[in-house]
Design a protein around this nucleic acid. Sequence first.
DNA 1: CACTCCCGCCAATTA
DNA 2: TAATTGGCGGGAGTG
Length: 897
Amino acid sequence: ENIFDRSRMAPKTPIKNEPIDLSKQKGCTPERNPITPVKIIDRPQPDPWTPTANLKILVSAASPDMRDREKKKELFRPIENSEQSDTPESLQYDIVDDSTVDEFEKQRPSRKQKSLGLLCQKFLARYPNYPLSTEKTTISLDEVASILGVERRRIYDIVNVLESLHLVSRVAKNQYCWHGRHNLSQTLKMLQEAGELQYGELMTSQHKEQDLEYKFGEQKKETIPDSQERPLLDFSEPDCSSASANSRKDKSLRIMSQKFVMLFLVSKTKIVTLDIAAKILIEETQDTVDHSKFKTKVRRLYDIANVLTSLGLIKKVHVTEERGRKPAFKWIGPVEFPEKTDELRGHSPTSDPLPGAQRGASVRYQTSATGKQRFTRHASFNSAQPCEATRRKVSSEPNSPRQEKQGSIVNSDENCSKMINLAAVCRQKIEEDTGNKACDTETILNSAKNSNATLPLSLLPAPGDSDFCVNPLPQAVLPVVQADVPSFSLPTGICSQASHPSMPAASKTENGKPTLFPNQPFLCFPSSSLFMLCGGLQENNLSELLPTAGHLGSRSAEAQAAVPPTVCQKRSSHKCSSLSAPVDEEPAAKKQVLEHSFLPLSLVVPKNPSESPKAESSSGSGCSATVHLETHRFDLASPAAPEAANKESVKPLDCHEQEKQPQNKDPDEPPPGNEHISKENANQPFQPQYLYVQPTAGLSGFNFLFSANQAPGAISLAANQMPSLSVPCVMVPSAALASFPLVCSPSFTGPLSPAPDGSFSAAAPTNFNMSSLAPTPPVFISTTAVVTPKVSAAASVDPQQPPHPALHLSPVLTRSCSAVKLDSPVCVGHPVTLLKLQQPSSAPLTPKSIRPAHHEAFFKTPGSLGDPVAWRKNEGNQTRNGSSVQRRLEISSTSPD
DNA sequence: CACTCCCGCCAATTA
DNA sequence: TAATTGGCGGGAGTG
C-alpha cells in the first residue's frame, strides 16, 4: 500500500520501481519484450498497477538479491513517505504531481520520465530560486531521494552540479543547504574569469576544435594548479592537498561541471560540443584519449548538461560540421554578470570581484584540509547571501557598512536594493523614444547578452546578492516597465521560487512586440509587508536607470547618491499618507486601497533626471515637503499625471517601487533600503505602478500589489492614502502558502478609464505560472488594464476580505487600454492562475477576462536565467525550448480552473 | 546504428 | 567498520 500511495503522491516512485523491475527482468528473465516498457504493462498483467508488482514478483523470485533490495527500499520508503505526507510540502508536491503525472500515470515510466533533467527540475522546483536570506533551507538527501522517488545516487548527481554553481552547499553528511540563485551570477562571473584565464584564448578561436582541445587540456592542467582562481572554481581546492585531492575530487562531477560551464562562458559562440568538452575535460591524458575514457566523460557531461539544462543555463543544440551533426550545448544563461551587483553598480568598493574570488575560495569549503567541505561557515551565512557573507569573512575588509547592514538587517535592505534594481530594470523606457529604447536595450542586453541566443534572458538583475532578483525584461525596448519579481518567500520558510524563468519565454515569443513587456513589471516583495509602489517612470533615461538600478541593488546609499537627489528618501509610512495624489480617475479607489494597506510605504521615487521638467517640477512642487522623495513622486505623478496621461498614453511604464517593510523589520532599514528607481517618461512624471499593500490582519497574509501605472494620476495618495491606482495585480501568498513568488506585471494602459464595473480592469489577464513541480508555485499576475476607480475600490476591499482576495482581482477590462497607446501599456492580460492559493479566490484571476488582443506577452521573465520554474512543469527539456510563453499560456489557461 | 544517459556496482571517503 | 559519496561503465531506450 505504501508503495501504491506513494506512487500517487510522487509520480516518480512508481516509475522508479517499475524501471527497476524491468531491468531486473531483463537480466533475470528474458521474457517477452525486453524492449518497450510499455509493453509490459500491456501484456500479461491486467492489473492496472499491478503490472509492476507482478514483475517484481517475478524478479524477486528470480533473484534473491533483488528481492532483498526491494525490501530494503520499501521499508525505507514508507517511512519517508509518511513523513512527507505530513509535511505541507509533500502536499504541494503531490498536487503538482498529480496534474502532471496523471497523464502518464503509472504507465511505465519511460526513460525520459526518469531522466536526470526531469529529476533535476523536480528537485529545483522544491526550492525557491531566490530564497530569503533569512531562511535557510536544508536539503536532506534521503528525504529528497525518497520524495522524488529515486535513489540517492541520482540526487548526488544533481547536487554535485548545483554545488559547483553554489546553488547549494554541503552542510553535513546527508545535508545540503540550499542557497538558490542569489549568487549564481557571481559564481558564473568567477567561472568566467577563471575560464578566461585557463582557456580564454582557446575559446576565442573556436575553430579548431582539436587544437583547442588540445590546448585546453594542456592549459588546464597547468593553469589550474597555478591559478588562484582555481580554488574558486573548484570548490575542492585541490591545491592544498593536491595529491590527495587529485584522486577523487579532481574528477569530480563538480569540477567537471565548473569546467564545463567555464567553457561556455569563455566561448564566444556560447556553444560547446560535447566531444570537445569531453576532450578538454579529459585533461591530463589528453594524449591517449582512450575511447572508453572519452565515452565515460561524455556520459558525465550528459549528466551535467542535464542539470544545467534544468537550470536553464544551457540548451541542447546540434552543430553540424563537416563530419556531421554533433551534439552540443548552447549557453543560454546570462552571459555577463553585470547584473549582479557589481557590474552594474559599478560596483562598490566593497564588492569587488576579487572578494568574490576569495569568497569562492572560502566558500569552497576547506575541503582540502578537512577533506570534506565543511560549511560551518556557510552555515553562518544566510542562504540568501552566502556570497556576501563569505566575502566578509574572507576579506578582512568588511564590506561597506551598508552591505553589512543589509545583510544583517535581513532582507529588507537587500530587498529594497533589489527592488530598486528591479525598478531600474523596469525603467526601460518607453518605446516612444526609440533612441532610448535602443539604449535601454543595450543595457539590458549587456546584462543579459544571451538574449540573442535564445530568449531573452532575463538577466538576473539580481542586484546582488539579495534575495530578490529582478529580471529585466529582455525587451528593454518596451517602454513599459518591467519588474521582476523575485521570489518572495515567506517567513514560513517556504521558499518561493523564482518566477523568472517563465517570463522570458513569453517575451521572446512575442518579440514582435515589445510592447508586451513594457507593461509588465514585476515586483516581488520579499518581506511580507512590503509596500511597493511603482509609478510609470519617465523614460528618459533608461540607460541611466539601469545603472542606477545596479547601484541600488548593491548599495542603496550609493544608489541614492548617484541618483538624483530626489530619489530616495524613503520613509515609511509618512509618505504614504503624504502621497496624495489624485490620480486619474479615481482617487477614491486608491484611497481605499491605501487605507487597507496602510502604507507605510516607502516610496521609491524614481529619480528622474530632471528631464522631464514637468514631472520633476510637478513632483517637487506637488509633493510638498511632507513626503519625502517618494512622496514627491507620487505627488508629482498625480498632478502631472492627468495631463501626462492624456498625452502619453503609454508611458506609464516606469515604475517606482518601493518597499516597505512593515514592522517586520527594523524600521531603520527601510529607509536605506528603499530606493527606487524610477524613470520618467519624458512627459509623464511617474506613475506609480504598483502599490503593495500590506495585508491587514484580515487578509490573512495576503499581500496585494497594485499597479498603478495606468493613469498617470492613477494613484493619488490622498490624505487618506488611498491611492486611486488601478490595481493591476495583487498577489499574496498566504502564510500557509509559504512563499510564493509573486510577480505582477502591471501593464497599464493608458489612462485610466473608469470602469463602471468596479472590477479591475485588466486588460490582460494575469497569469500565474507555476511550476508544476515546484511546490510553491510562483504566481504571476499581470494586469493590464487600468482599474476604474470603482474597481480600485473594490480592490481595496478585497484585501480586507481575506477569504476572497482574488475576487476583486478579477480583471476587468479597462478601457484604459485604448487610452494607452503603446502596445504594451495597455493591455496585458495574462491569465492568472493561482496555485495553491486558497482555492477559490484564485479563480477570479483567471485569464478569462483577458483578451487575446491585448495580451502582451506577459511577462518576460526574467528568468531567462533559468527559470526552471517555469519549466519544471513538464516535460522535458525540450519543451522548454519551445516557446515558454506558449506553455505558460497553456498552463495558465488550464490552471485557472 | 548512434546518441543519450539510466542504473547501480563498488571503491574512495567519511563519520 | 558502517555509511556516505560518487566514479564509472554496461547496456538499455530512443530516434
